[in-house]
């Protein structure tokens, strides 16, 4: 019996354990751990056209905002992008873009091609901020309420029905709550 013949078995054992652990984690559920938490501490530089960048201080100023994680290499992002363009055109909703693991020039080019619905863009070159936000895949979309707490997260493409049934009602509700707390003060 020679040891080198056990190498494939060992490799598989490592794989199987990871798969087993992965199974208990259930990636679809994990992000909800962030729901209700304040926006993580982060600060990102901007891109040409959005020099201000994006950081924790941009949240919690009484305004409900939508945060959209996007990348130029992400094909599904193109599918949802027209909806954000539409939101930007109708106005009244602030949209922040979190550009994930992209080259700055690619992101600029992409926004020039498909339109730029974002009020602010943070360039997350190494994906650090994305990890803090619990970004699992691109695209993802968050709602942050007026106090700077993440109240909702959508994984994957935002479709019209997700926008109309999940996102817009929640934003409206959050906005009403914000208005009420302002009144009681």
């Amino acid at each position: 019996m020679r040891l080198k013949f056990f190498i494939p078995l060992l490799a598989f054992v490592v794989l199987a354990i990871s798969l087993g652990v992965g199974l208990t984690l259930k990636p679809r559920d994990i992000p909800s751990a962030l729901i209700g938490d304040p926006v993580p501490e982060f600060s990102l530089p901007g891109i040409p056209g959005h020099e201000d960048g994006l950081s924790t201080a941009d949240f919690g100023n009484g305004e409900v905002v939508l945060v959209n994680v996007f990348a130029s290499w992400c094909i599904p992002c193109r599918q949802e992008h027209p909806l954000f363009m539409e939101l930007a055109r109708t106005g009244g909703i602030k949209i922040y873009g979190l550009n994930q693991r992209d080259k700055v020039e690619d992101a600029v080019q992409w926004l020039a091609t498909f339109g730029d619905p974002y009020d602010r863009v943070g360039s997350d070159l190494d994906g650090r901020a994305g990890i803090d936000w619990g970004v699992y895949g691109v695209p993802e979309t968050f709602i942050v309420d007026g106090r700077g707490r993440i109240i909702y997260k959508h994984i994957g493409v935002v479709t019209r029905s997700v926008l109309d049934k999940e996102i817009l009602p929640r934003m409206e509700q959050a906005r009403r709550q914000a208005a009420e707390t302002a009144e009681t003060k």
Binding site: L15, S18, V21, L25, Q100, R101
Partner: peptide, 20 residues
């Protein structure tokens, strides 16, 4: 394909690996 899963299992960190 599995790296995101491994890292998650070992450190709890989440990453995405894209076409790049």
């Amino acid at each position: 394909t599995l790296y995101p899963l491994f890292l998650d299992a070992l450190t709890g960190e989440k990453v995405t690996v894209g076409p790049p």
